[in-house]
Simulated scan of single mutants.
Amino acid sequence: MVFASENEIPDKYPQKHFNLSPKQQKILQESMQQVDAEKQKEQKKSIIKGSTALENKQSRHQKAKQDTAQSMDVENPYVGLTEQTTEAQEKKAQISFKKQWIYGTAVITTTFLDGSIKRSYGVLLRDGMFVTSANMVYDKNVYARSSYAMMQDDSSLPFICVAKLSIKALDLQKGLAILETLNYTDMYCNERPKSFYHDRIYSSHWVDVFKHPTQSNPAVVYAPYITPLNSFATEKNILQENLKQVAQKESNDFEGYKYAYGKGFYTHDGKLLGIVGASNDNVPKLIRVKEISDFLCELKERKILKNPYLQEACAPSNVEELK
């Protein structure tokens, strides 16, 4: 088992910036929407690529959020959006956001100390942690320089950058990585204090991996996908085969990747079945939700995770009930 942290990177990997190749730039720029040209000229602080800008649309909660933001003296990411509800946006785009776990889904963009870049899905866990595939944050002894999570609030379509992440633990044999929130960010991935929209996402939309589904291979499963509107939506899969085989199918979720690493599969009632994981060999496999909860409990026993809720969730009686 390998455990790593951004705070413990060996000196042989100095912190410095690398010039990105055209191909790498193209991968990052996929995650960005067009920002108003005049605003780009005025923006002097460099925008971290891999983030995304909101379109000129306004959520139904704009006024309430503006008032909240002003009272907290913080930036409001929803200023300038037109009045349009997510229901109307859904109908127009013919896509569905009815599954609440959609808002616990993240796109994780990781840059490495050698200048390489990887993008994957991630699943938000309790206390601001994320689970994803190990091969997306660790690359043959090259450490991650930084990771950023982009998520979607349930009052507006486009997802935005919400947090900078660091590796808390990873296991190359299991193919799992646990990331923790290092700093909160604005929509452009610039660091900022925690605000109402961070608290809203983190407190309302985390996925409980200790609620195991009764069926390991249901007839219908659900998964996230990225729409042309730069948002997440629900994909319904009627299984003609084993869920493990579905997880190993090639996907075009991210350009340059054959498989949707980190993608979660859910039951109709929103329980996580598992995610697509892999180690350094990049061979995809289905990692069942029980393997994820067992990994968290193992990290608790090793005192790597000290989250209070794990004391109860990983109690012997509870673990026996989940088996």
Rank of each mutant, 00 (worst) to 15 (best):
F232D: 04
Y259T: 00
Y309L: 06
A88N: 11
N19K: 15
E42G: 06
Q248R: 15
K306V: 15
V123F: 00
S317F: 14
L272I: 12
P224I: 02
Q94E: 13
V220N: 03
A53W: 06
S31Q: 15
S231T: 06
T185P: 02
K63D: 12
H198D: 15
L157V: 07
N318D: 07
V162Y: 14
A93N: 07
H205S: 15
Y222E: 05
E191A: 11
K290S: 13
K16L: 15
L229V: 04
N183F: 12
K249L: 08
Y138L: 10
M72A: 12
S203K: 09
G50Q: 05
V276Q: 00
L179F: 04
P308A: 09
P284K: 05
I47L: 10
P158F: 06
N252F: 00
Q311W: 01
L305P: 01
D36S: 13
L229H: 10
Q29D: 13
K249F: 00
P158E: 13
D269R: 09
K174P: 02
L272W: 07
G264L: 06
Q215G: 01
V209D: 10
A53K: 03
P10M: 07
A64H: 06
A106W: 01
H268K: 14
M129N: 10
T86H: 03
E8F: 10
V209T: 09
D67R: 13
A313C: 09
S216V: 04
V79I: 09
